[in-house]
Amino acid sequence: MNWNLETEHFVIRLPLADQDGDALFGLLKNPQVGAHLPRLPMFVSVQSLDELRRATMRFQAREAATWLVLRRSDNVDDLAAFQARITLQNINWMLSSARLQWELADDVKREELAEMISAVESFCFDELQLHRLELRMVPEAAEQRANAEALGYQYEGCLPAQMEFDERWIDQVLYSRLATDRV
C-alpha cells in the first residue's frame, strides 16, 4: 500500500524521521498552527525530532499516520517548507474510525486545504476502508471550524473538559465525515 499521495498542487508524504526535523520545526513553531487543537508551539528544534520518532513508532504499530505536505514547485524554497502536517490518529480498526487533524501554514487557503484533505480522505475511505473520520477542536477556533464545515464535516456536539491546557479546562467540538457522506 502506498501511503504517499500526490495532488495537482501538493505532495503529501510520510515523514522521513532523519531529514524532516528542521522543516517540521519551521511549521510547528508558529503558535497559530496548532492553536485550534490546542497544542503548544514548539520552542526548540529537538522537539520536532521527538515528534518524528513518535510518529514513526505509532505508524509502525498501525495506530496513527502522519503526513507532511509540500507544495509542488520548481522553487527550492517551496520544497524546503511544509504547508501542513496532517495526522490520522486513534485509528480503531474494529469500529472503522479514526481521528483526523490538520495543522496549516499561515498562507494555506481553504481550497488548498480541500485539495489536501480530499486526497487523505480518499485514501482513508478507499484504501484503509475506514468508515468514519472525526475532527476535534476548541469551540473558539472559528476559522478551522468554518474550514471543517466547508469540507463537509458535520457538527456532532461539544465534549466538556477534555484536557487541561494552559491552566484551564478545554472543551472540544466534534465533527465527523463518513464514507457514505461522499456523493
Binding site: 474494529m94 472503522s96 468514519r132 456532532e156 465534549l159 466538556p160 466534534l174
Partner: peptide, 22 residues
C-alpha cells in the same frame, strides 16, 4: 454532549449512532 454518527459497528458494513453523555 454529542451524538456520533455511525460511531458503533454492528456488523461488517452496518453502523449505529452513539450518544456521548458526560
Amino acid at each position: 454532549s454529542a451524538r456520533q454518527r455511525d460511531g458503533w459497528r454492528t456488523a461488517e458494513q452496518t453502523f449505529v449512532d452513539v450518544e456521548l453523555y458526560h
